[in-house]
């Protein structure tokens, strides 16, 4: 601040915008174009390689762009592997995760934000404290626990950890705290029960927060790898991520198939991102999702 205390050119008038400013913005493109190209390159490579004939991939010197385009990689992927089954599994896991998150976390968030009941401070405090526990600490006992109740190698093993989360409860509680209490008081005075108020008055207002929560849960459950890797060894219960990771070892040189599987695993989220970018960014701003 001391630097600013000595005005060097007091003649400047604050209302006046420097006229050269607009032209200067062109320079930013010189920075942004290479950066954008770098960030986009892996996607372009992914798509191109998935369409490249097998014979062209391992040739030397390599080509930047294939001479012809083929759908062989996709044909092989859908014809010879269980990719459709795994995609179905992942969709199932994500649907259960998102549905359960939306219901359970908004219920809990509302309870902790608005209702008075004994033990609520202790309960919420405990929930917040668990943020500090790294997931790696929980892997072994959770595995043993799931093995004892027979969840290992079932799709349910991939779902249970995503039924509710601290993030979800916290997000919904923060949102409900920001709603004016008068809304529900009026409903309660009119004879509406707490449940009725919640379902009919409060939840419809919570759409933006629910969108954030849904995106967070979709992204995390769709992309989760560590936990399915530990809990699921049966190829029939593989998730998409687990399946394509497995390809890497089993079909090491089958690059067009590998990249086709990458496209299948990534494209749904990419499309979703492009169409719901605003909500995605809001979600990312709220917390770091990728774990």
């Amino acid at each position: 601040m001391t630097l600013l205390a000595t005005p060097a050119r007091p003649a400047h008038r604050p209302e006046e915008r420097p006229p050269r400013r607009r032209r200067r913005t062109a320079w930013w493109h010189l920075v942004l174009v290479p950066v954008a190209v770098l960030f986009a390159t892996p996607f372009v490579q992914m798509l191109l390689t998935s369409l490249t004939p097998e014979s062209e991939i391992n040739r030397f010197p390599p080509r930047f762009v294939p001479s012809s385009i083929t759908l062989d990689g996709y044909a092989k992927l859908f014809g010879e592997t269980d990719i459709l089954l795994w995609t179905g599994n992942t969709i199932l896991v994500s649907v259960v995760a998102v549905g359960s998150h939306l219901i359970l976390c908004s219920l809990a968030g509302y309870g902790f934000a608005r209702l008075k009941f004994p033990g609520r401070h202790v309960g919420f405090g405990l929930i917040l404290a668990t943020i500090m526990i790294p997931t790696q600490l929980l892997m072994v006992p959770t595995y043993v626990m799931f093995a004892r109740v027979g969840l290992i190698d079932t799709l349910a093993a991939a779902m249970v950890p995503w039924l509710a989360s601290v993030f979800g409860i916290f997000l919904m509680r923060q949102f409900f705290l920001s709603l004016p209490a008068e809304l529900e008081e009026a409903a309660v005075l009119d004879g509406c029960s707490r449940w009725g108020t919640f379902w009919r008055i409060i939840l419809p207002l919570a759409r933006p927060a629910l969108a954030t929560l849904a995106i967070f849960t979709l992204l995390s459950s769709w992309n989760d790898l560590v936990w399915p890797l530990i809990a699921i060894n049966d190829p029939n219960a593989f998730t998409l991520q687990l399946g394509i990771t497995n390809f890497q070892g089993a079909r090491r040189t089958d690059w067009s198939l590998l990249m086709a599987s990458n496209v299948v695993a990534t494209l749904p989220l990419i499309l979703f991102f492009v169409f719901a970018q605003k909500q995605f960014i809001a979600t990312m701003t709220f917390t770091g999702v990728k774990g």
Binding site: P42, Q45, L225, Q241, L242, W255, A265, T266
Partner: peptide
């Protein structure tokens, strides 16, 4: 959009891309 897009790519997909 281009800079944010990689955020939705899973570790499994990134791994395959990296090795390639």
């Amino acid at each position: 959009t281009l800079i944010f897009l990689p955020f939705v790519v899973s570790a499994a997909a990134t791994g395959i891309l990296t090795t390639y």
